[in-house]
Write a protein that binds this DNA or RNA. Structure first.
Lengths: 147, 147
DNA sequence: GAACAAGCTGGAGCACACTCTAGGTCAAGC
DNA sequence: GCTTGACCTAGAGTGTGCTCCAGCTTGTTC
């Protein structure tokens, strides 16, 4: 696995602390673990989860991937690969690279979708500038683009 | 069937036709109407919904707004404004302009989130190029960003 | 006028990603 | 050794956005 440290030295965080630092709720972090998205979580004698700084960085990565539209299912796949160790590096790279492509495509799509919205805002500006209400038309003939 | 006209002027579409043209399901279009997202839908003698070309454009707008993250609730607000006629033009403009800002902010966020993913892909590339496995490091020191 | 396609309504069901509750355990401080 | 607060598990509940089903009506075609 990826135990994070056996020397116990630099940081040993309980769930409340990691929740605070990562800006998530305690519930959510436990739920992430149940979904297989938290590698290398160990327990202390009292069965409490013990985290390290590593997990702060990990949750940051998860957040960025989620934010850019990666599903929990895909995050799980990625996490599974991480748990498998360095043999899975090519697969991890491929998974992230594919995600990058999807995100760039998404940005392109959004940008394109915005063009119509831009056009409508301009249309509203013109309409309002041109003394609203006159040359009012019933909406069968479809205005500049279905207003 | 798909009669397409009863000699009503420019276009009188039934729900199946508009579903086909807009790429949505009949279910979805009825659901949109129930959610208050379909202005100007009339019925024929047989209580069937009658649409026009206007609605194709309308659904295109709805799709673009949805695609860029506008919620059904906000679409409903916008639709309500449209139903109120030209008096609501300033409010409509404001609503769309606010949405534009949100979308641009989102794109910026996505782009920023991608930087970490870019860094990780590069990290994988380097690792794999450098004969995987050698110089293997326990990840306590947290690599370029919690791999 | 019978068959059949297309439409209708109301409401159930589903996938996703959390979010929270109930009821209990554990560790540390006094 | 008792209180307090953080933590535990299992599972129920929530919000969003569809998606579909059952059972019925309407319009068209032969």
């Amino acid at each position: 696995m990826m135990d994070a440290r056996t020397t116990q030295a630099p940081s040993a965080l309980h769930i409340g602390e990691i929740a605070r630092r990562s800006g998530r709720s305690v519930h959510t972090i436990r739920w992430y673990e149940m979904q297989g998205l938290m590698p290398g979580v160990v327990r202390d004698r009292g069965r409490r989860r013990v985290y390290s700084d590593y997990h702060i960085g990990w949750l940051d990565l998860m957040e960025r991937l989620r934010l850019t539209g990666m599903s929990i299912r895909q995050l799980r796949e990625y996490t599974t690969l991480v748990k498998q160790g360095s043999a899975s590096l090519p697969k991890r790279r491929a998974l992230l690279a594919a995600h990058q492509l999807r995100v760039h495509a998404m940005i392109a799509k959004w940008t394109e979708a915005l063009t119509l919205v831009d056009a409508k805002v301009e249309f509203y500006d013109e309409w309002m500038a041109g003394a609203a209400g006159q040359r009012f038309r019933r909406n069968s003939g479809r205005a500049p683009g279905a207003r």
